[in-house]
């Protein structure tokens, strides 16, 4: 297993609840795994632990294995090698990842030479090759351009090229297409998909958009209040989502087709770090909650079709696609 996170719990002094609670997650080589959640769900924190970018004063239990090495046990040189080599991260805003006064080519050359194994001439040739590999036209010319001369989509390609420089095996994409226009997002996703195929990249794809994750990934984890509440094959998620939160997300997200379905909002708001829970964190917003849910510590329950869902009432919940009664459909124009 390329990435294997086991029972990761991360606490901060002063926080009312852990940022992450018993998170377990796996990504195989060549696999695209989605990590979905709303703000404060812990999805980005999970990704950062893979690079051991922990908040200061954080206390961590559990293991984060990348290719069998426990990242949390690494230190000094080992950690630097890990960050520079095996794993690469692509963030939401490409502009903040690039130095605005330097040429985009220099950004790549720096990445390539930082490992100390490549001289500048080879690095330059390699950088141009990478710019071509991420689908930028005229890579020679792009090499000499500065960030303000390129569009957001092109810059995100440059950042991806930078991520590929060290030939990583695992790519962490943290909302890396969220700031882009929808047509540009599609281009970047097509690029990521082809890179995965060419390079057998494992990918952890973090997004707030459940439909995007389910359409793009092989498997999807859904997080809520620092916990993984459901994990399934992406295809089955549309039709066989089981956790009430996942079903709630599907029911409240508008879709292009299926417009006769009225949007069914989840009541309440996503929990903040100051909210504490004695049991299932979703219980207060859950239509199926019983008083006992308030004291039931969530644990993943295996699902018949593969995957898990952490819900106490799993046996009694509806199956099949999310279908809500058409309630408040407005009068036709």
């Amino acid at each position: 297993m390329l990435l294997d996170i086991q029972n990761l719990t991360l606490g901060l002094p002063g926080a009312a609840r852990p940022l992450l609670a018993e998170v377990s997650l796996r990504v195989g080589a060549g696999e695209t795994v989605g990590l979905v959640g709303e703000s404060g769900s812990g999805k980005s924190t999970t990704a950062k632990t893979v690079l051991r970018l922990l908040p200061e004063a954080a206390s961590v239990t559990g293991r984060v294995l990348v290719d069998g090495t426990d990242v949390l046990a690494l230190d000094g040189a080992g950690l630097r090698a890990h960050r520079a080599g095996t794993v690469a991260m692509v963030h939401q805003d490409p502009r903040s990842a690039l130095n605005p006064v330097r040429r985009v080519g220099d950004f790549l050359v720096e990445r390539l030479t930082s490992t100390g194994t490549t001289d500048r001439r080879t690095a330059r040739a390699k950088a141009v090759e990478l710019l071509g590999a991420v689908g930028l036209s005229e890579p020679e010319r792009r090499f000499g351009q500065r960030p303000h001369e390129l569009s957001g989509g092109m810059l995100q390609r440059v950042v991806i090229a930078g991520a590929l420089a060290a030939e990583p095996r695992l790519l962490l994409a943290d909302e890396s297409t969220s700031a882009l226009d929808v047509t540009t997002q599609a281009e970047i996703l097509a690029l990521l998909r082809s890179l995965r195929e060419q390079r057998d990249l494992g990918m952890l794809f973090i997004t707030h958009d459940l439909h995007l994750a389910a359409a793009f990934c092989d498997r999807v984890y859904v997080m809520y209040a620092g916990r993984v509440v459901e994990q399934q094959e992406a295809d089955r998620l549309f039709t066989h989502a089981r956790h009430p939160y996942t079903r709630g997300l599907l029911a409240c997200s508008p879709e292009l087709e299926d417009i006769d379905r009225a949007l069914e909002p989840i009541p309440g708001r996503p929990p903040s770090l100051s909210d504490t829970f004695t049991g299932c964190p979703f219980a207060t917003r859950c239509p199926h909650a019983e008083p006992e849910c308030g004291t039931w510590i969530p644990e993943p329950v295996p699902l018949p079709g593969g995957g898990t869902a952490a819900c106490r009432r799993l046996a009694d919940l509806p199956e099949g696609p999310v279908e809500q009664p058409v309630l408040a459909k407005r009068s036709p124009a």
């Binding site: 997002q185 599609a186 281009e187 996703l189 097509a190 439909h211 359409a215 793009f216 292009l256």
Partner: peptide, 18 residues
């Protein structure tokens, strides 16, 4: 059509948008 083809949904492939 391009805008619509770019919206991720069930059974979507980024290649549709291309």
């Amino acid at each position: 059509r391009l805008l619509l083809a770019s919206v991720p949904r069930r059974g979507w492939d980024p290649a549709d948008a291309e």
